Simulated scan of single mutants.
Amino acid sequence: MVRKLEKWRLRIGAALVTLGLLLNGYRPAAAQEVPTTLIEDFQGWFQLITQGTISGPLKGYFELQPRFRDDIGALDRILIRPAVYFNVSPTSTLWFGLAIVPAFQTNGTFTETRFWQQFQNVAKAGDLLITNRSRLEERLVPNTDGTSIRLRHLLRLEYPFDAAKLWSLIVADEIFFNLNDVRSLPAGLDQNRAFAGFGNRLTPALKLEFGYMANFVNRPELPDRLNHNLVVTLLYNFDAR
């Protein structure tokens, strides 16, 4: 049953990511014809992640992610994202998590709360590491009139390119869809994130990743956004010590 679920999830995920790439390429092109319909910004996203076994099959995850906007000149928001997860097959895990997201805007601070569930599959084809991740989020967003349900799917490819396999090339794409209508968050495409960068295994337990992300944000009632993001991640896996 798990294998059948993985097979169909991989097919659906690939289709969603392909659609996301097409949409991510189409919208900015249209914006070049009407420049006022697209707002661009350079941002910095910095992630600190730790994960590993809590007890028996149960594993824990914690992420702290400050994001800076306005050419990395102002704090935009902080993501505080804990979770627990466990294996449902040798290559797949099931996750349950929470996210608390205070956003620092010019007119005040607003905090979003998310509950999320995730199914993740990590497979290898030779030295190529293929990650498919499907996440469902129930979002309690200030100034809306209900709970926004969002589906997001990530496809990530990582390939080592040095003899010691300490350095790797990483490319990824993640597409987001709102599944229901709430005020200011209509159903349909929410955003798409396309990433290219590098990974460096500093120690068996510590890994550094960095690169560029093109983050297209669809805003039906406002000008769309294209954020050019510097993304830096430091990940510590205490199972690998």
Rank of each mutant, 00 (worst) to 15 (best):
M1A: 13
M1C: 04
V2C: 12
R9V: 14
R11W: 09
G13N: 13
A15C: 05
A15F: 06
A15N: 03
L21T: 01
R27V: 11
P28M: 07
A29N: 07
A30N: 07
A30K: 13
E40D: 06
D41R: 00
F42L: 03
F42T: 11
Q43V: 01
G44P: 00
F46R: 00
F46C: 05
G52F: 05
G52R: 02
G52W: 02
I54S: 15
P57C: 04
K59Q: 12
Q65T: 07
Q65V: 07
F68A: 15
D70I: 05
I72M: 15
A74S: 15
A74V: 09
R77K: 13
I78A: 14
I80E: 04
I80V: 14
I80S: 10
P82T: 10
P82R: 15
F86A: 07
F86C: 02
P90H: 13
T93C: 08
T93P: 04
L94H: 01
L94W: 07
L98W: 01
I100H: 11
V101W: 02
P102H: 05
A103F: 01
A103H: 10
T106I: 14
N107F: 12
N107C: 09
T109P: 05
F110T: 12
T111L: 10
T111I: 08
T111D: 06
E112F: 04
E112N: 11
F115R: 15
W116Y: 13
Q118F: 05
N121Y: 04
A123Y: 00
K124A: 10
K124R: 07
L128E: 08
T131F: 12
R133W: 11
L136S: 10
L136M: 15
R139A: 03
L140G: 02
V141I: 14
N143Q: 09
T144N: 04
G146M: 07
S148A: 14
S148Q: 15
I149V: 14
R150H: 12
L151Y: 14
L155F: 07
L155T: 10
R156A: 15
E158T: 06
Y159M: 06
A163P: 00
L166K: 04
S168K: 11
S168T: 08
L169V: 06
A172R: 11
F176A: 01
F177N: 11
N180I: 02
R183E: 08
R183L: 08
S184T: 12
L185R: 11
P186Y: 03
P186T: 01
G188N: 10
G188P: 02
L189M: 08
L189C: 02
Q191N: 06
N192C: 06
N192E: 05
G197I: 07
F198K: 06
G199L: 06
N200S: 10
L202D: 06
P204D: 03
Y212A: 15
M213L: 15
A214W: 09
N215E: 11
N218P: 02
R219A: 12
E221A: 15
L226Y: 04
L230Q: 05
V231L: 13
Y236D: 06
F238D: 07
R241V: 09
